[in-house]
């Protein structure tokens, strides 16, 4: 299948960001864009801040639970962005929310599709997953830490591009939209939306971010499976707070709060 490829020239054309996308790279293939971005941050500290790495194909893309994540060459938007900061963890949770909100808005701006965020930062259209985000961080030289926001958004896939076992749980912009899909515009918007939250002089205000996230959150009452301290719980969401966690009505009857830091959606 031949889909239009990304080029650096096309992505940066008209890109007006202050921090994100100061340097843009497009790779034909990468183990994962997060790996490339983390390595670049280690190699060239300082100049790596704001670097955006795109790849047409990932040979070792990572998803939840270390699952390998596959997409046909050129079908998804695969992007990682580097942020450098002090080696402290206080804002780690906020970055994952920024990434979700930015990806959600980038899709809205370029496709007319309004995806919803499933805690903490997966993109859903109805009950089908459109994209996901994985943030990784690594300590680098001089007491700094490199944060890498990695996003994968399904663009050109048809249903038969997804493996049969996830076909009814996955979707793409092509499937959802009546408009032609422009992956380059989506790439540019991802950088612009992230820049709005992360450019110099912008305080990452937790309250503002929280309400932006809640505005885009999918409705409550959906089935959820969580792992908490090594055990799996199933139920329906009763309440959500992006930073505090999920209140879940468990299938066996109890209602229980799962705190954000220790719970994983499985």
């Amino acid at each position: 299948m031949q889909w239009p490829l990304l080029t650096v020239k096309a992505i940066v054309e008209g890109l007006r960001t202050e921090r994100i996308g100061r340097v843009v790279e497009v790779l034909d293939e990468a183990p994962s864009t997060n790996d490339v971005a983390l390595a670049a941050a280690e190699r060239s500290v300082a100049s790596a801040d704001g670097l955006a790495v795109f790849a047409e194909y990932q040979t070792a893309g990572r998803g939840r639970q270390g699952r390998t994540w596959h997409a046909p060459r050129g079908a998804s938007l695969l992007c990682s962005v580097v942020l450098l900061g002090p080696d402290e963890m206080a804002q780690a949770g906020l970055l994952t929310l920024v990434a979700g909100v930015a990806a959600c808005d980038a899709v809205r701006e370029t496709s007319g599709i309004w995806p919803m965020l499933r805690w903490p930062n997966d993109l859903y259209v109805g009950s089908r997953k459109l994209g996901g985000i994985l943030v990784e961080s690594r300590p680098i030289a001089s007491g700094q830490r490199a944060w890498v926001i990695g996003a994968g958004i399904n663009c050109y896939q048809h249903a038969n591009h997804f493996p049969p076992e996830i076909r009814d749980q996955a979707t793409s912009l092509e499937i959802e939209s009546i408009e032609p899909i422009n992956r380059t515009a989506l790439a540019r918007q991802c950088l612009s939306q992230l820049d709005m939250w992360l450019k110099p002089g912008t305080d990452l205000v937790a309250d503002r971010l929280r309400s932006a996230w809640l505005d885009r959150a999918e409705s409550l009452g959906r089935p959820v499976r969580l792992r908490y301290e090594g055990r799996v719980f199933e139920g329906r969401t009763v309440d959500v707070d992006p930073q505090a966690g999920l209140l879940v009505q468990l299938n066996e009857g109890a209602r229980r709060w799962f705190d954000a830091a220790r719970s994983q959606i499985v």
Partner: peptide, 26 residues
Amino acid sequence: AMKVFNEIKADVAGTIEQILVRNEEA
């Protein structure tokens, strides 16, 4: 935490004598 995976360094030179937590433990 919240799908942010953070590599943690030793901050000390030496030999690992004991691992006090299990994989996936909170």
